[in-house]
């Protein structure tokens, strides 16, 4: 396990510390010394935290788990960008070779009304689970399925469904959006299921219910700036939002006779 012979960095970190959702919070300054350029950003924070503990201080809380860019747990804003400066990269896959010696790095939590801060850099993203509960599924009980090859799915559709399904639910799209909209997250799920034959029976209901829940959670509206897609570590396309809007419009029109418009008396 010999160390790399590459250069080492000495950095200043300005890290957001906040004791709980109702605490005001502030930036605190820390040093990170002798940082190998082969380290990941989170490994650099591990080093900083172990130093803090040894010096009798409380380490900085941050969410992380798989550290290979797929679980969606890590959620830092690094120098103003959710997941940091590199495109198509989660914070855990951001490596220190992207930084310069002597640099000052600002580290903040994802900020949105619907993502309250739990502690330091940890936020509560359970609003995403509630949006999924509203309709991000196909209603099929175990045991009902026919043979997997009974319905052919055009490869292009299957591939496009996969591209949308690759969303890791990290919430960077929300953190990047000036309105804190969750449109890209919701659109990814609606697009994934809407492109598959299995997803058709609930397509209208899904769009209406998921969007209603997104609004209820306090996420903002979409104004098509595209910051979400540009920030997305999985590069979910902005087209998904167009697809979502289309599904929503169609569903609203089709749903009209059954909804309160009927009650209003046509």
């Amino acid at each position: 396990m010999s160390g790399s012979s590459k250069e080492k960095l000495n950095l200043k970190l300005k890290v957001w510390r906040q004791k709980g959702p109702n605490d005001k919070g502030e930036f605190m300054e820390y040093d990170a010394k002798d940082i190998s350029t082969d380290m990941s950003f989170l490994e650099m924070l591990d080093v900083m935290n172990n130093d803090l503990i040894r010096n009798g201080k409380d380490p900085v809380e941050f969410d992380h788990d798989c550290r290979e860019g797929i679980c969606g747990a890590c959620s830092l804003v690094v120098n103003g960008s959710p997941h940091g400066p590199e495109v198509a990269t989660t914070t855990c896959q951001l490596h220190m070779r992207k930084f310069k010696d002597g640099e000052t790095i600002y580290v903040e939590p994802f900020r949105a009304k619907a993502f309250p801060v739990v502690r330091d850099l940890v936020v509560d993203r359970s609003s995403f689970d509630r949006i999924q509960q509203a309709g991000g599924f196909i209603s099929v009980n175990t045991g009902n399925a026919q043979d997997a090859n009974a319905i052919a799915v055009a490869k292009d559709n299957a591939d496009a469904a996969f591209e949308a399904a690759a969303c890791i639910g990290c919430g960077a799209c929300v953190a990047a959006c000036k309105n804190a909209s969750a449109s890209l997250f919701v659109a990814a799920k609606i697009t994934h299921l809407g492109l598959l034959p299995q997803g058709q029976p609930e397509r209208d209901k899904r769009a209406l219910a998921m969007i209603a829940q997104m609004d209820a959670e306090g996420f903002g509206g979409c104004t098509n700036t595209g910051a979400c897609s540009a920030t997305c570590p999985k590069e979910i396309s902005l087209e998904t939002i167009a697809k979502m809007n289309r599904d929503y419009l169609v569903a609203t029109v089709r749903d009209r006779p059954k909804s309160e418009t009927l009650g209003a008396g046509i």
């Binding site: 490869k155 299921l193 299995q198």
Partner: peptide, 19 residues
């Protein structure tokens, strides 16, 4: 595999549309 396809798991497919 049958159940996962029914749930909308986007498995890789061939040009004929099968898995």
């Amino acid at each position: 595999i049958d159940h996962c396809v029914a749930l909308g798991v986007p498995f890789a497919r061939e040009y004929g549309g099968l898995l």
